[in-house]
Design a binder for these strands. Structure first.
Lengths: 248, 248
DNA sequence: GGGCTGGGTTGATCGGTATCAATGCCTGAC
DNA sequence: GTCAGGCATTGATACCGATCAACCCAGCCC
């Protein structure tokens, strides 16, 4: 079968149509800085890939040759200590841009925690593109600032919040992560294991499990499945997460 | 007295000479993106100020109207919980640029911990300057990436390191902060109190004090004064900070 | 001088979370 | 079907760092 016969119009007559056109993450990602008519240039330097679960595609200390944009699925970003202690610095979902926090080598590792689709840009090429489209650089700076604010919030969590406050904060951020622009959600999915939640919150598996059990017993949440939770008392969780319920 | 008579040459004949020319922090700060001949434009929008100790000049949640560049002294950046718990997210010294991690409101507070000199830029004006000098925006993006990497390292510290590892990491970062480009230093100054060190490391005053006493007793450091320390066994501290001495 | 205050150190005890351990549940292999 | 392995939950106990408390010291005011 001749592939050109199947989609002749798209491939031969509409040069602005590209894989980036169809990207569900485009409007929310850094790529939104690129106008529709210039999208072909972005698409030209992007390599689209699909990764199965548990694939490490960025390794801390390796030469930072590429940037990545997640278009589907979730990855964890983490750092390791020599004896195996792990700190997950963030979870990245669709629209998330990876590779910012780098000089010449990656400052963290990244691993898929479920099947993931992403597109890859080589550093020199993206740099050239930034030169042609200054709006892209502005957008990246915005992104970096947002990540910085998130990181500072996480430092507050890791340095000063109790286990219960950490888990409450996590559940709320997860609920909102799914629908960034919409109304507050009361139901959420946890694509990561308890161990990964623990490594993100600076706790142990057992403590995370116990806190969730306690929330459930107290009627603050409902466990639909191990990876599916409904927030039955969102206001209470918000108070706890903000540090207003030290006695509770 | 007529001011123009006091410094006539500077003000009337040498338009390129400005306060930014004399700034000791210029070569290491974001301002290094500006060429010497364009420095006057930078100086024109900068307001130089001197602040005494313990002055809060950025308050979390306030409208983010300005950026700051520290030229002398040290400030602490921090976030608070309603009950007074504090997490210091960083200490900023000469050359450090503040205000990156913002949307429309500041994401953190800033307070001087010793007398400080800084220069202030209004957001709209700096934005305009970025438009004229794209190199400035590139430099800011670099800065943001570095801060992001630092923040991730701090998350690893807060989430997974022991008290001794945290203090060792802190001492080493302090030793290098003073001479960013030079050889590894063995002597360092601590302009902050024990309480501020504790709030930075996610510990208490007592724990910080005890760990320092222990390091001293074990001969790993020498206390020259409460705010002055010599690292007598830097290699050992580096191993501890990196997580290689779990048994020690 | 005396008293006061803020910062630092050190000791005794407490408690929140880690650690160790057992069990249950689900899924995939065969 | 059975078995094995990974993940989650729950209980018993241990321990690191927090808390409570006492004391020291230097600087400052009077």
């Amino acid at each position: 079968m001749n592939f050109a016969q199947v989609r002749p119009v798209v491939l031969t007559e509409d040069h602005t149509h590209s894989a980036c056109d169809d990207c569900g993450a485009r409007t929310i990602s850094v790529c939104s800085a690129i106008e529709d008519r210039d999208l072909a240039q972005l698409s030209a330097i992007a390599v689209h890939r699909t990764l199965e679960k548990s694939r490490v595609f960025i390794e801390e200390g390796e030469a930072a040759s590429d940037f990545f944009n997640i278009t589907a699925g979730t990855v964890k970003l983490f750092k390791l200590l020599p004896d195996g202690r792990q700190q997950i610095t963030g979870f990245a979902g669709p629209g998330h841009f990876l590779g910012l926090a780098v000089a010449d080598t990656y400052a963290f590792s990244a691993e898929t925690i479920e099947p993931v689709r992403l597109c890859r840009f080589s550093r020199p090429r993206l740099r050239a593109l930034m030169h042609d489209f200054p709006a892209l650089e502005t957008r990246l700076l915005q992104t970096a600032c947002n990540e910085l604010a998130t990181a500072q919030e996480q430092m507050l969590l890791l340095g000063r919040k109790t286990a219960r406050e950490r888990v409450a904060s996590f559940l709320l951020s997860r609920a909102d992560a799914a629908h960034p622009c919409g109304h507050p959600q009361t139901e959420l999915r946890l694509p990561m294991t308890r161990g990964e939640i623990a490594d993100y919150l600076g706790l142990t598996i057992e403590t995370v499990s116990r806190v969730l059990s306690r929330f459930h017993a107290d009627g603050q949440i409902t466990r639909i499945a191990t990876d599916r939770i409904r927030l039955t008392n969102r206001a209470w969780l918000e108070n706890l997460a903000a540090g207003n319920l030290t006695g509770a």
